[in-house]
């Protein structure tokens, strides 16, 4: 079954230069293995096609039930150079929460 990430996660995003970061946090401990398995750097790269022009890096923080994504070259130059309304990537978190993953029904109890 398909599940949208906002059903099982919360998130916050910000910027460092032209790189956006998104912290994706499972709402429950049992959801962490699901996002660890399904929300890979490759999947996120594909999701952000046309927004993230560089590569996507993923780091795991199982202690916080969280993944941290670095989205390189994603902010139109960053800082005062960027012409984007969201020059600091504040809404990239919500953009990641739009992503759908395909999971086995037994994997997740909502």
């Amino acid at each position: 079954m398909k599940i949208r990430l906002d059903k099982i996660c919360h998130a916050r995003s910000g910027d460092k230069g032209d790189t956006g970061n998104v912290g994706l946090i499972a709402l429950k401990k049992e959801y962490y293995p699901i996002i660890e398995k399904h929300v890979t750097a490759q999947r996120v790269q594909k999701h952000f096609e046309g927004i993230v022009l560089g590569n996507v890096e993923r780091f795991e923080l199982p202690n916080l039930w969280a993944l941290n994504f670095l989205l390189h070259n994603a902010l139109g130059g960053g800082g005062t150079k960027s012409l984007k309304n969201d020059a600091q990537g504040k809404t990239l978190s919500a953009a990641l929460l739009r992503m759908e993953i395909e999971v086995e029904e037994k994997e997740v109890k909502l």
Partner: peptide
């Protein structure tokens, strides 16, 4: 814990 976690993940790179 949730409000603290969100801030812990704000604008970080490699968490290690």
């Amino acid at each position: 814990q949730q409000t603290v976690k969100e801030q812990l993940l704000y604008e970080i790179g490699n968490p290690k």
